[in-house]
C-alpha cells in the first residue's frame, strides 16, 4: 500500500546510499547528501541504514499514508506535523493509515531526511534507488517526487519503540560560520602564495547556486594565478586544464572567482582546475548549508583528515549504540 504525495515541497527526491562504480562513465554515486542523517532516520524506524527515504530541501512534502508505519525525520530542523499536530525531529513516531504527514517552516539546516518503515521500494537502477535527475536515473521515472505520485513501500523493517530518539549531543549541525576542512592538492600550485593564503583567510558565503551537483561560494578575494603558457588542449583561461576527473568534494574555482565544491551528483570531470578537496568527514555538513551561510575553509593535512573521518565513524557508532 503506497503513500500518496499531495505536495512535494521545492525539491524532494528519493535517495539511498547511492550507486558507486559508474563514475568513469559520468554517472555519479549520488545518494543522500547528508549520509549520517539518512542512516539515522532509517535506524529510528527499524530499516536497514541504507534503505531509500526522502530528501527534502528547505520545504517538506505533504504525504497521505494508506497503511500504518513508523516515520522519523533527521538532518535539517524541519518540524513534522501529523494531521496538523507537531511531532519531534530525530525521533520515531507512528503514523496511522489515513493520516497526513506535513511540515512546518524550516528552522535550521537545509535538507531533511524522511525515513518510513519498510523503506521506499521503487525500482533500483544500477543498484540504487537514488534520484539522479540530470541523467534521468532512479527515483520515479528518473525525476524528483511530484504531487500525484504514489510511493511504494517495502517490507522487512524491524519493530521499534515509538518515541525512540537520538540524544541531543549526537545531533551535529553546521556551526556559524560553518567550517569546511580542505586538504590542499590537485592544482593547488596553479595559484600564487598570496592566493593560497587568502582562500583560507577569507569568509565566504554560500551562493544561491547550491544543489546536489555542487555548492558555489562567493565573497572572498579573487585568486591570482601563477603565470604559465596554457598547455595544448587546456583552453585559454588560466583556470582551465586539459579536461580531467573531478574528485567528490573537490573545490574548483572557474576564473579564480567563485569556488564550487562538487557533491554527490558531481559532474565527473571537466576543464577547470581545482585547489583541493573537502575531506570526507565534512561532506555531510555541506548538504545542511543554506544559501548566504558564512563559511570558512580550514586547511588540514592528511592525518587530520583521517582522524576526522575516524571521529565521524565513531559518532555514527554512538548513534547505532544509542538506538539499539
Amino acid at each position: 500500500m503506497p503513500i500518496n504525495v499531495i505536495s512535494a515541497g521545492i525539491a524532494t527526491t528519493i535517495q539511498d546510499m547511492g550507486r558507486p562504480g559508474y563514475y568513469h562513465l559520468g554517472i555519479p554515486m549520488g545518494g543522500a547528501m547528508d549520509r549520517l542523517a539518512l542512516r539515522t532516520a532509517n535506524l529510528l524506524v527499524g530499516n536497514d541504514e541504507g534503505a531509500a527515504g526522502l530528501e527534502s530541501v528547505f520545504v517538506g512534502p505533504e504525504l497521505e499514508f494508506t497503511e500504518d508505519a513508523m516515520v522519523a525525520v533527521c538532518g535539517a530542523e524541519l518540524p513534522p506535523k501529523l494531521d496538523g499536530e507537531p511531532r519531534e525531529t530525530w525521533t520515531a513516531f507512528p503514523v496511522k493509515a489515513g493520516q497526513v504527514l506535513s511540515f512546518d517552516f524550516l528552522k535550521s539546516g537545509a535538507r531533511a531526511y524522511i525515513a518510513i518503515s519498510g523503506g521506499i521500494n521503487t525500482e533500483p537502477k544500477l543498484g540504487s534507488r537514488s534520484t539522479y535527475a540530470i541523467g534521468a536515473l532512479g527515483g520515479i521515472d528518473g525525476r524528483a517526487v511530484q504531487p500525484g505520485d504514489t510511493l511504494p513501500l517495502g517490507k522487512g523493517s524491524k519493530s521499534v519503540k515509538e518515541g525512540l530518539t537520538v540524544p541531543q549531543t549526537l545531533r551535529r549541525g553546521p556551526g556559524n560560520p560553518a567550517e569546511l576542512r580542505v586538504l590542499p592538492g590537485l592544482y593547488w600550485h596553479r595559484i600564487t602564495e598570496q592566493a593560497q593564503k587568502d582562500f583560507f583567510d577569507d569568509t565566504w558565503k554560500v551562493a544561491n547556486e547550491a544543489d546536489r551537483m555542487g555548492y558555489r561560494f562567493q565573497g572572498g578575494r579573487k585568486l591570482e594565478f601563477v603565470e604559465r603558457e596554457q598547455p595544448f588542449g587546456a583552453g585559454a583561461d588560466p583556470s582551465n586544464i586539459t579536461d580531467a576527473c573531478y574528485p567528490y568534494g573537490s573545490v574548483q574555482v572557474p576564473s579564480g572567482t567563485e569556488p564550487i565544491v562538487l557533491h554527490r551528483d558531481a559532474v565527473s570531470g571537466g576543464g577547470y582546475f581545482m585547489i583541493g578537496t573537502v575531506i570526507s568527514a565534512d561532506m555531510d555538513l555541506i548538504g545542511q548549508l543554506q544559501p548566504h551561510t558564512p563559511t570558512r575553509f580550514v586547511k588540514v593535512d592528511m592525518d587530520t583528515a583521517l582522524a576526522a573521518r575516524h571521529d565521524r565513524a565513531k559518532t555514527m557508532d554512538a548513534i547505532r549504540e544509542a538506538l539499539s
Binding site: L183, G185, L186, W188, P231, F232, G233, A234, I241, T242, A244, C245, P247, Y248, G249, S250, M274, G276, T277, V278, I279, S280, M302, A305, L306, R309
Partner: peptide
Amino acid sequence: YTFGGDEHIFVEVDEAMSL
C-alpha cells in the same frame, strides 16, 4: 601524483593533451 582529499588519488600524466 596528488591526493584529492582522503578518498581520491589524482594522477596527471601530462598537462597537455596528446594520444
